[in-house]
Design a protein around this nucleic acid. Structure first.
Lengths: 235, 235
DNA sequence: GAATCCCGTCATTAATCTGTTATATTGAGA
DNA sequence: TCTCAATATAACAGATTAATGACGGGATTC
């Protein structure tokens, strides 16, 4: 079963060795990793997997890194995804600095892995606080992702693995509506085939545990669209 | 993903072999390790990862160790981070001693790993008490890491090496859930290949010894996630 | 060198979770 | 208010996951 609720990264890099190294280290840090070998592939994978962060090599065969960057920025889905550029020393460094490429940060090769990881974390924290935050607190609901504990007020909740992950996903993006299909993709993973209605059942179970004592339901059903964590609940 | 509750160290060292050695041993001790190859990188990584301790080579290409030290001290974020200097024998030793470099301690190369770890622990104990204590006491369980003795109440427990290390790892971070893979990495090491389920067996053995007299079980199983030392047990 | 201890694996059992389906309920639009 | 599609819920069987006991081999100790 694929682990989810994790921040995901798309690596766009044609040099295979570097790619593997980055993947290894990012996965060690708890990221989910996608790869693309060239610009075209990058656009496809970005659209399909909608990563939380894109690491983009400046020098790519065919479509250049900067062009990929532009196209990603032009599309709705990927417009706000942070991008870290990898550049060789001296290679257009100043132009990158000056140009509005739309990249959020860039790193000059060769770079140390810890520097790279530190920057990734920094970018991620800035753009998606919920994704890398250790504890997420919304209203009287508190999820500690390090200790794997969920509290409503002082009451500790016992959630099954799937319920936990669904809640995690919803709380990471309060207010955002997830379709059943999206939840299946991110919570269950793309490999498994599960009936869409199954999501309803788990949402039901989650609600039951969440609202045991008759509290206000923090999960909003959006008819014919999906579910979301009610953002008005957080206040 | 940012891991908290774990002491972190930044190694600034251009000699790759030494760097690897230090990293290996520090990680074994439960530290989170960042690396930098030169002074500039050190400043960047220090700012981004805000380590609890910096191990700084005196001789660095470009920016010298002492200069890095000064700059770190000049900046708000890193002003109070303890620094351990690594120096070659005879190399400016007296001047370091005399100068107000801002370093907290220094070690002359070559040095024994246990001396290095002892000093790191000493510095860390000052800055992050609790994470590197010689004796860890949680509830009625007491682990003396110097004498390698574990007591539950007055009863001394006999643990095998592996059980001891697992318990150590768990007690260093009460509450934090470790996956089987993480435990394998930190307790067994990354080189050996061991079945993930083997962790279960050792946890079982640990529990058996821990709860001989029918006491409350301090180890929490988190289904499909791993194990943790129950932090509510400590109260 | 024998005895002991410790370890890793496996098979079995126990506990818990999961996906599906059938049925009830809800809600929006006619 | 009625209708119909969408959602909620309960129940169940099967699947996963964890706990436990047993065993052989290898290391360690005396």
């Amino acid at each position: 079963m694929s682990e989810t609720g994790r921040p995901s990264v798309l690596i766009v890099e044609d040099e295979s060795a570097l790619c593997t190294l980055l993947r290894y280290n990012l996965e060690r840090e708890g990221y989910r990793v996608f790869e693309a070998r060239n610009g075209d592939e990058a656009l496809v994978v970005a659209a399909e997997s909608s990563p939380d962060l894109i690491v983009l090599d400046w020098m790519l065969p065919e479509l250049s890194g900067i062009e990929v960057c532009r196209r990603l920025r032009a599309r709705g889905e990927s417009r706000n995804v942070p991008i870290i550029m990898l550049t060789a020393r001296g290679e257009e460094t100043d132009r990158i600095r000056g140009l509005d490429t739309g990249a959020d940060d860039y790193i000059v090769k060769p770079f140390s892995m810890s520097e790279f990881l530190a920057r990734s974390r920094a970018v991620m924290r800035r753009v998606r606080p919920g994704l890398v935050e250790d504890v997420i607190a919304l209203g009287d609901i508190n999820m500690d992702r390090v200790n794997h504990r969920v509290h409503r007020g002082t009451r500790e909740l016992h959630l099954g693995p799937t319920e936990y992950r669904i809640l995690e996903r919803l709380m990471q993006n309060p207010g955002r509506v997830f379709s059943r299909e999206q939840l299946l993709d991110t919570v269950w993973g793309t490999e498994v085939y599960v009936e869409a209605r199954t999501v309803d059942v788990h949402i039901g179970r989650l609600r039951k545990t969440l609202n045991q004592s008759g509290e206000r339901d923090p999960i909003r059903t959006v008819r014919s669209a999906g579910y979301s964590f009610d953002e008005t609940f957080a206040n």
